[in-house]
Simulated scan of single mutants.
Amino acid sequence: MTNILIVDDQDDMRAGIRSMLLLDPTFVVVGDLSDGLQVPAFLRDNAVDLVLMDIRMPGIDGVEATRWIRKEHPASRLRVIVLTTFDQDEIVLAALRAGANGFLSKTVSLAELVAGIAEVVAGGGALSAAATAALIGHMTDSPPAVIDKGLLERFFALTPRERDVIVLVASGLDNHEIAAQMSVSPFTVKTHAVRAMTKVGARDRAQLVTFTFRAGLHP
């Protein structure tokens, strides 16, 4: 079972997300909050595995609330997915730098939401197509001035197949698209990506993309 906290200032949005999550018996909604300022006290008193966090809220926004969570709760114990209608690159980057493990649009289907939660809870990362495009767009428009040689050395541990996968990940393709291009199964692609994340020390897929660009290995 996955204990989930919903944080969003819109009553109808919280109710809608809760209704969607109740359709999956593996999820337990342990609470829903309308303000990021309420998060610290709730997490002190309740067992939570995953926070679904809105970006635009009164008090403190989702980025700041996520930053506070990371000061008190490591990603290995508490995962955070940002849910928003915004996909601008600066918002995506701010959320990821604050410690978010995923970034999904509020318009995702139930299947996409469930898949994203499962991916993040399992230790991976979930990015909507628009968020991925925003992240890659920012990295392409503002590439690092100098290659991070320390990061590049970590990539030396990858197999040729793993390197092929992460380059395609950094180009914005999803697992199914990569699988079709490499003539392998999506499960094989996911396995290569997870192993690559472990070897280079990336906490999730989004950070893997960032590391790939910083190491000068982007397409």
Rank of each mutant, 00 (worst) to 15 (best):
A111C: 00
M53Q: 07
P219K: 07
L110K: 11
A94E: 12
P74Q: 12
F211R: 13
F155N: 15
Q88K: 11
N3D: 14
W68S: 01
A47N: 13
Q10E: 05
L151C: 08
A157P: 00
V30R: 12
A111G: 04
G59T: 08
A206W: 06
S109N: 07
H138K: 15
S171F: 04
P40Y: 07
M13T: 12
V167G: 10
D11F: 13
L217M: 09
D148A: 11
T132N: 07
T26V: 08
D49R: 12
D9M: 13
L52D: 09
V82G: 06
F42M: 07
H138D: 12
E153P: 00
Q10C: 00
T85H: 03
A129Y: 12
N101K: 09
I147W: 06
H73V: 02
N101M: 11
T66P: 02
P58H: 10
A193T: 14
L83A: 06
H176S: 04
D164T: 09
A15I: 13
A131N: 02
R214A: 15
A206F: 09
F213I: 15
A95N: 09
Q207E: 14
H73P: 06
F103M: 02
V169L: 15
N46R: 12
D54V: 09
H138V: 01
P144K: 03
T140N: 10
I6Y: 05
D35R: 13
A95C: 14
A15M: 06
F155Y: 14
A94C: 05
D89Q: 09
D49Q: 09
V28R: 10
E112N: 01
P186A: 11
L168V: 03
V209Y: 11
T191C: 03
P160E: 10
R56Q: 14
G36L: 04
V63Y: 06
V146R: 14
A206H: 05
G201C: 10
R79I: 08
Q38N: 03
G102I: 12
G137W: 06
M13N: 07
Q207I: 08
A41M: 08
D49I: 05
F213G: 00
I81N: 12
K106C: 08
V108P: 01
P143S: 10
T191Y: 11
I147G: 01
G172K: 14
S183F: 08
S76I: 09
F211A: 11
M197N: 10
V146M: 13
T66Q: 01
V165L: 02
E119C: 07
M57R: 11
S105K: 07
G125E: 08
R203D: 02
V167I: 15
L21K: 12
L173E: 10
